[in-house]
């Protein structure tokens, strides 16, 4: 059974037309299913868990990074047994801005996404864990003055750098760089002035400092925090042009 989770921003009238087109396309492809809207729902975790227990197998977030992060965080939450999770397929129909997760998964916007869901190209992905919060793509801080602890060494980062901590790559330009983007590791990219670049990969990193870390450009958490990967956690539908 398909479960479509619509984000609350889609209630705005300017999204009616695109939603209609998507719904028609899904019906044509025989992919229609139950729709839930996040507008009035406060506890998305218990709602998603209930639908999974009732037999939902394909969970499709309809919206942007925030929607995807909310739905995936609910799915990989400890209170949902791995027995349920192993039969679940997650996918995304991107609408609006803030779409780095869709870019990473290689899913095109709106109606094109319906074709990708039909094609069912499946990958098992790791999920990033920052403290108690999950992320799909990356955690980032712009202009941080922070420190990182990795194994036996520490990294001092100056204020004018941009820190990205990746699970899945969302930047096509990184594919052409001369470093090894190992998908089984936490990947740390620090961009400085004059194209200066630092790169580390590790199993776990502790981020120290007085700042906020943004996860998937969807939510923020306070420092200090530990970041690691939960391995092989979720089956997702991806497009041909995925970036990992």
């Amino acid at each position: 059974m398909n479960l479509f989770v619509y984000d609350d921003f889609l209630n705005k009238s300017r999204y009616n037309r695109v939603l209609n087109k998507i719904e028609i396309r899904l019906t044509d492809l025989g992919l229609n299913g139950k729709i839930i809207r996040l507008g009035s729902i406060k506890n998305i975790n218990s709602l998603v868990h209930q639908e999974v227990r009732n037999g939902a197998k394909n969970i499709i977030a309809v919206g942007n990074n925030e929607t995807a992060n909310k739905v995936v965080s609910a799915l990989v939450d400890d209170s949902l047994s791995d027995l349920f999770l192993k039969n679940i397929l997650f996918s995304l129909i991107p609408i609006g801005d803030n779409q780095s997760i869709a870019r990473s998964l290689g899913i095109e916007k709106e109606e094109e996404a319906c074709n990708t869901i039909l094609a069912r190209r499946i990958e098992k992905i790791n999920i990033g864990l920052a403290g108690k919060s999950f992320f799909i793509n990356k955690a980032e801080i712009i202009k941080p003055q922070i420190g990182l602890d990795i194994n036996d060494f520490k990294i001092e980062i100056k204020e004018k750098n941009h820190l990205n901590i990746y699970n899945l790559n969302d930047n096509p330009q990184l594919l052409n760089k001369d470093f090894n983007f190992n998908k089984e590791k936490v990947k740390i990219l620090i961009n400085g002035k004059n194209n200066d670049l630092s790169y580390f990969q590790c199993d776990q990193v502790k981020v120290n400092g007085d700042a906020q870390l943004t996860l998937d450009n969807a939510k923020s958490i306070n420092l200090p925090t530990n970041i690691s990967l939960v391995k092989n956690k979720l089956n997702v539908i991806v497009g041909k042009n995925r970036l990992f």
């Binding site: 194994n151 036996d152 060494f153 520490k154 990294i155 001092e156 980062i157 100056k158 004018k160 750098n161 001369d178 470093f179 090894n180 190992n182 620090i190 400085g192 002035k193 200066d196 670049l197 630092s198 790169y199 580390f200 990969q201």
Partner: peptide, 24 residues
């Protein structure tokens, strides 16, 4: 031989401690 670096310590950062790696 140095392609596919596992670690790059750029000019704008400072690393302190014992670094152990397998890659370039």
């Amino acid at each position: 031989n140095f392609k596919d670096a596992e670690t790059i310590i750029g000019a704008s950062i400072k690393v302190k401690g014992n670094f152990n790696g397998q890659g370039n």
